[in-house]
Nucleic acid binder design. Structure first.
Lengths: 143, 143
DNA sequence: ATCAGAATCATACTTTTGGGTGAAAGCATT
DNA sequence: AATGCTTTCACCCAAAAGTATGATTCTGAT
């Protein structure tokens, strides 16, 4: 979060700096207003989308299993108390990804993924990821 | 979220204010450009966030799969060249056992199990046991 | 306003896995 | 007997996984 804001501030500063430089170097002031507004609008729309995504954690999920979608057993999920984010990690695990790969996919640090996996192991009463996968399958949590 | 946006606004205001101060110290220029940039940036950041949220709000699970009894795909097994012993190790892996546990079950040393797993990874083109399990399942080698 | 839960990340440490190499013994088949 | 395949085991090293603990931030509910 702090990082995000810092990055935002940095980008903003950079943008304004660039505009300033352009302004001083080429005197493009006359035809500039609409141009500036356009550029700034575009940039900040993109930035806003990025920030929105970052903030609301609605990231792109794992690559889907090739055939036939699957309906997880919601009641079992809730009974065990597996959170949405944990479930995403579980999916990655079951698809054979390493913690690092899952972290990359979900835009997390590997430490966070480890935390999620640890919690999953506790909730699923497993000691290894393979065991967790096996149990999750048995419970109809994953395909 | 609210705090974040407020912070953005604050940072933006601060930045522009600083720019203004700097500007006044050297050249006295037209004020409107930065003002416009600020306004447009804010507006479009908000817009971007809104769009981002709009775009990521979607949920659409689909129909359930079918389940059947399992018969290992012998032809695939032979094609890949998985030996009987390797298959036993694969089964143990898929059931969530550690190498040590598999070794105990099959009365082997852990080293032997490791050799088998290594060979399995090569044959299944996998880097992790979870991946091997996933691939073996996809090939109909295991349930 | 407080409080519980998610979710995020870190650091330090231990255990398990995985990769590479080598090698011995048993077995079928040629 | 020589060949090839399987099975067995060892050792070393590196990478990944797992454990424990603590902390921060944000959200939703009370």
């Amino acid at each position: 979060m702090r990082k995000t804001i810092l990055l935002y501030a940095l980008l903003l500063a950079l943008l304004i700096f660039l505009l300033k430089v352009l302004e001083y170097k080429f005197f493009v002031r006359d035809l500039s207003l609409e141009f500036y507004i356009g550029v700034v609008a575009l940039l900040f729309t993109g930035l806003g989308i990025w920030v929105g995504l970052k903030l609301t954690r609605k990231r792109n999920p794992m690559p889907p299993p090739a055939v036939g979608s699957f309906v997880p057993n919601e009641s079992a999920l809730q009974q065990i108390g597996i959170s949405p984010r944990e479930y995403e990690v579980l999916e990655g695990m079951a698809q054979g990804f390493s913690n690092q790969e899952i972290a990359d996919k979900l835009f997390l640090s590997i430490n966070t993924v480890k935390t999620h996996t640890s919690n999953l192991f506790t909730k699923l009463d497993a000691r290894r990821r393979t065991q967790a996968i096996q149990k999750a399958k048995a419970l109809g949590l994953i395909p």
